[in-house]
Design a protein around this nucleic acid. Structure first.
Length: 305
DNA sequence: CATTTCACCTGGTGGC
DNA sequence: TGCCACCAGGTGAAAT
C-alpha cells in the first residue's frame, strides 16, 4: 500500500514505540515468500537484539539493531546535543509491497489473517508484519560478522558490511542539478521515470500523479525532453506534495493504517488520483485516466501540458 | 541497452 | 445470492 509518506508515517510510529526495546523471540508463519533470506536466518539474527531505532529509506522500513550480547544502554552525553549515535551491528529491512502492514500490538491482540511475522519484545509488546498479497519482503542483514563474502574475520580490523541504502535518490533532499541529471536523455514517459526506484526512491502511483498535476506536466511527456524550468517545477511539486502528505499521515486508500492503526488524511487532498471523470479542482475539466507503464494514470487535460 | 509487459498474490467492488 | 471481470498503493524478470 505504501509510498514514501505512508512508509515515513509508519516508520516514525514504530520507532516511537519500539526504540530501545529488545527482541526476545521471533516467529515466522510461512516458509514461502516474503523472505529474502530464510525464516531461520532471520529468527536467529533477530533474537536477543536491541532495537536502536527505526527509519525510512526509500519505501523500506529499516530497523537498526544492536548487539545481542552486551545490553547497550543509550546514554545521552550532556555535553553534546542530540542522541548519541550507536552503530547498528545488524538491520531488519521491511518492504510493505502493496498491502503490507507493520503494527505494534499487545501480545493478546487478535492475530490478523496473513500475519507472517511476530516479534515478541521485552516490553511485552509485539511487532507484527501482516501482508495479504505477499508482495512485501523481509530481510535480515548482519553488518558486523562478515568480510562481505560471508567469512568471519578474526583478529584483523573488522570489515563492516554495507548498511542498507536505497538505489535511487531521496526525493525530499535531492538538489536541482542532480534531479535534472536523472532524466537526461531518457525517452520514456516522465510518469514512468518517477516510478523507477533506481532513479528516485519512494515515489509511487499516487504521488507521481499528484506531483505531475501540481507541476502542470502531462504524464506522457518524454522525461528527457522536459525543460529546466519544468524539471525544477516538478522537483518542488514533488517535495511539497510528499511533505504535505507526511504532515497528514499519508493517504488512506482502502484499509491503510499507520503503526497505531490510525488512518491518514491525504486522500482528501488528492487532486487527480482516482478522480477519473470528476471535475478538475482548478478548471472543472473532467479528470482523464490513461495507462502508462501498466499503471493507471490520472491527469487534467486542460491544466497539464 | 532502454523500455514495456507481465506475473506474482488476495480481496474488494460493481455489473449482470 | 452467485459468478465474473476488473481494479488495487510495488517490483523485478521476461519479452520486445
Amino acid at each position: 500500500m505504501p509510498e514514501l509518506p505512508e512508509v515515513e508515517t509508519i516508520a516514525r510510529g514504530v520507532d516511537a514505540r519500539v526504540r530501545g526495546d529488545r527482541v526476545l523471540h521471533a516467529w515466522f508463519g510461512s516458509h514461502r515468500e516474503p523472505f529474502k533470506n530464510s525464516p531461520s536466518v532471520q529468527m536467529q539474527g533477530l533474537e536477543g537484539r536491541i532495537i536502536l531505532g527505526v527509519e525510512r529509506v526509500g519505501k523500506h522500513i529499516v530497523c537498526n539493531l544492536g548487539s545481542s550480547s552486551a545490553p547497550q544502554k543509550k546514554r545521552a552525553r550532556k555535553s553534546t546535543a542530540g542522541p548519541v549515535a550507536v552503530q547498528p551491528s545488524a538491520q531488519w529491512i521491511v518492504h510493505l509491497g502493496m498491502t503490507g502492514r507493520l503494527l505494534v500490538t499487545t501480545p493478546d491482540a487478535p492475530v490478523a489473517p496473513h500475519t507472517h511475522a511476530r516479534l515478541t519484545l521485552a516490553s511485552g509488546h509485539e511487532l507484527r508484519f501482516v501482508d495479504p498479497r505477499r508482495f512485501g519482503r523481509l530481510e535480515f542483514r548482519d553488518l558486523a560478522a562478515s568480510n562481505g563474502i560471508g567469512i568471519p574475520v578474526l583478529g584483523a580490523p573488522q570489515f563492516l558490511a554495507p548498511r542498507f541504502v536505497a538505489p535511487g535518490a531521496e526525493p525530499l533532499s535531492i538538489q536541482p542539478a542532480e534531479f535534472a541529471t536523472l532524466f537526461h536523455g531518457r525517452r520514456l514517459a516522465i510518469k514512468a521515470a518517477l516510478l523507477n526506484q533506481k532513479l528516485l526512491s519512494g515515489v509511487g502511483n499516487i504521488y507521481a500523479d499528484e506531483s505531475l498535476f501540481r507541476a502542470g506536466i502531462r504524464p506522457r511527456r518524454s522525461a528527457g525532453r522536459l525543460t529546466r524550468i519544468e524539471l525544477e517545477r516538478l522537483r518542488l511539486a514533488l517535495r511539497e506534495v510528499l511533505q504535505h502528505a507526511i504532515r497528514l499521515g499519508g493517504s488512506s486508500v482502502s484499509d491503510y493504517v499507520d503503526a497505531e492503526g490510525v488512518r491518514g488524511f491525504f486522500q482528501l487532498e488528492h487532486c487527480v488520483y482516482q478522480r477519473t471523470g470528476q471535475p478538475c479542482l482548478t478548471c472543472k475539466t473532467p479528470v482523464r485516466r490513461i495507462t502508462i507503464a501498466g499503471r493507471s494514470t490520472h491527469y487534467c487535460p486542460h491544466c497539464q501540458h
